[in-house]
Structures are given as structure tokens and as C-alpha cells.
């Protein structure tokens, strides 16, 4: 049933590791999601939104040169649901983001799909 779990969901992935980003994209697409963008760096959110709505974001915390806390805040500000997918423990989150959903790496893909399905702003 996973192929329908995320059907129609417009999702972006922010992950600096090519292989993992590629993996996630593949899995989420298999679950029916439409992956709008995969990026190793913090993407331009406004540019992405210009092309259409975003239902959810799956973001790594550490992008090598930068972290995604500000991006997460931007998502919060625009009420776009997101989940962190990270090798860190949830304890590393700053106070204002500590309520964010956090998935620990290496993650079972079913777990990722389930979480995204829960948080995603589903189109009616």
C-alpha cells in the first residue's frame, strides 16, 4: 500500500549525500510522491514555491558547509511540514526547533514514508 501512501504529495529533499538523496528520492517516488527537488545545499524556497505548492520536506541537518536550522524555520514560517532526517540525535536541535519531527539515520524507508505521510499537508 506504500505506493499510495504519498500519492500526489509534492516533496523536496535536502540531503548533501548524493547516494542517500538518490535513495530517498527513489523510495518516496515509489510511494507515490512527486519529488520536486533534491538538493545538497539549502534551496531557494521561494523559487520552488513559484512552481507550485509543497506538501512536505525531508531535510538533513548537516549539509557539510552549513546546517538547515534556518531553512527549517523558513519552512515553519511558511507552514510547510518537514521532518529532519539526520545522523544526529534530536538533542542537537535548537530550542525553537526541538518540537520538530526527527528521523534518525540510517532509517527504514517505511518509517520515512510513514512519517512524511503523517505530517504532509495533503491536498484535499
Amino acid at each position: 500500500m506504500t505506493d499510495r501512501a504519498l500519492s500526489g504529495c509534492r516533496i523536496i529533499i535536502v540531503e548533501d549525500d548524493y547516494y542517500q538523496a538518490h535513495d530517498c528520492k527513489q523510495m518516496l517516488e515509489q510511494a507515490g510522491a512527486k519529488v520536486i527537488a533534491v538538493s545538497a545545499v539549502v534551496p531557494d524556497l521561494d523559487a520552488l514555491l513559484a512552481d507550485g505548492r509543497l506538501d512536505a520536506a525531508l531535510i538533513d541537518i548537516n549539509l557539510g558547509q552549513s546546517h538547515t536550522f534556518d531553512f527549517a524555520r523558513e519552512l515553519n514560517a511558511k507552514a510547510i511540514p518537514f521532518a529532519f532526517l539526520t545522523g544526529y540525535d534530536a538533542g542537537i536541535l535548537p530550542d525553537d526547533l526541538s518540537a520538530s519531527t526527527c528521523i534518525s539515520k540510517p532509517a527504514n524507508i517505511n518509517r520515512v514514508i510513514e512519517v512524511i505521510a503523517n505530517i504532509a499537508a495533503r491536498p484535499t
Binding site: Q20, H22, G87, Y88, D89, S104, K105
Partner: peptide, 21 residues
């Protein structure tokens, strides 16, 4: 320690991806 944990988890993820690819 946090970084090592992160890296090890990343590495495992990467190995998994490399294996799959």
C-alpha cells in the same frame, strides 16, 4: 561524539546506497 555518531550513521547509509547502486 555527536559528529562521530552522525558520521557513522551517514556512512552506514552511504554503504547501503553504494551497495544498492
Amino acid at each position: 561524539v555527536a559528529e562521530l555518531q552522525h558520521r557513522v550513521r551517514n556512512l552506514i547509509g552511504m554503504v547501503r546506497s553504494v551497495a544498492r547502486l
